[in-house]
Design a protein around this nucleic acid. Structure first.
Lengths: 218, 218
DNA sequence: GGTGGATAGATTGTCGACAATATAGTTATT
DNA sequence: AATAACTATATTGTCGACAATCTATCCACC
């Protein structure tokens, strides 16, 4: 026996991951059409696996499919981004609430360690924090909720969409120092097992991000 | 030109709808295995369309699929139901908030009419209200949010799962008269354009339902 | 010249067959 | 008798071809 959960990787999986990456990173342009035959030859697999990959992309809301017509990569609009952040505020707020209830003491301790390591990096390069660090922070809280539906919706669904916006609309931006303070307060609330406050702070944190983006993009 | 949005119905669509219905209504038992070949002969279509239908069921979280092994209908557990209601509380709370902001005056007026017609029916048979009426009420508010992601997640995703629990665990139960009062207050908050209160009342309404179910099932 | 319909090309939907993998049953070995 | 390896069977993953549908072009007609 080698690994504990030995999940087989199928060809459709690989094609799905590749396509998702290409779309999120903008290799395949937003709003463009996805031709099954074209992608089939491009990735060297049959149309069937491309179709399955596209179906999964549709589940992630990364493409829209119409019968007998085909699939298009979603268009990026300010309105769409705002709606995305509304859903995110709602779900991650609940995630923070549940994390305050369900995370183990050691998980919370690890979260504090992560936060400290971020603090060290904020002083140096700000980019790293914004890119990977922020995602990692939110990810841990989402997983800490221990709610499978929540985790699936956010990790498999919304996050790739949000990253797509972030990459293609070039939403790097500062907001680093203030965001760090907000993260610190959220962790404190979780550590105190204050569900109400953890949810409220997380919602505000995401709301601020949304308002920051809105102001920047119009 | 006949209709405005003339969506073509493909064979995979029909198979998907049929399968979803069979699963939600318990025709196909929870936790049972879905054999592609078996379903293929049963519904008289090729394995390819069955596979596509199963993939979509997986997107709805109605089945779980493992590579090279197959798909099983999800198991119904109290823990799973609770997690579902936590997500629902979060999302429908946001839906009520957005509905208070985005519903038109006429839509709100229609909602009041619906509520009144429910009131008439509560006095007679209680079953109708609980079954269709309650769903209709929540549906209108969800759509009233005007947030496509929210609508899709709730209507295409969570609601069928919740209905599956409701049908198969036999969660009919009263709670009719009190629920009606809660509905009335939610509509009033929406009518007053009080986003904060609308969200809070909707969350409480769903939280009460959850607690009611928990108490009943253990 | 503009509009409507027919035709040709291309794209998606569906199918049956083959390949790869998992499962169950059997045999051989310790 | 228990375990391990092997074989046979069944199920899923993948493929190429055919059918149904959409799109664009061209022609007839007003």
């Amino acid at each position: 026996m080698i690994a504990f959960t030995e999940q087989a990787i199928t060809g459709a999986d690989k094609t799905f991951f590749q396509l998702r990456s290409d779309i999120v990173e903008g290799e395949i342009k937003a709003g463009s059409k996805l031709s099954e035959m074209e992608l089939s030859t491009k990735y060297g697999v049959s149309r069937a696996v491309v179709r399955e990959a596209i179906n999964r992309l549709e589940s992630c809301h990364l493409v829209e499919r119409k019968p007998n017509i085909g699939a298009r990569v979603v268009a990026l609009t300010l309105e769409g981004l705002i709606q995305l952040y509304q859903v995110r505020e709602s779900l991650e707020g609940m995630a923070a609430r549940l994390a305050a209830k369900n995370m183990t003491d050691t998980e919370i301790e690890d979260l504090k360690v992560l936060l400290n390591s971020h603090f060290q990096e904020v002083k140096g390069s700000q980019t790293y924090y914004q890119e990977a660090g922020d995602v990692d922070f939110h990810y841990r809280i989402i997983v800490g909720s221990k709610n499978d539906h929540l985790i699936s919706m956010l990790v498999n669904g919304l996050y790739h969409l949000i990253r797509m916006y972030r990459v293609q609309l070039g939403m790097a931006g500062p907001r680093v120092s203030t965001a760090f303070e907000e993260h610190k307060n959220i962790v404190q609330a979780i550590s105190n097992r204050d569900e109400e406050l953890a949810e409220m702070l997380m919602r505000r944190h995401i709301l601020y991000s949304k308002q920051n983006i809105e102001a920047r993009l119009r």
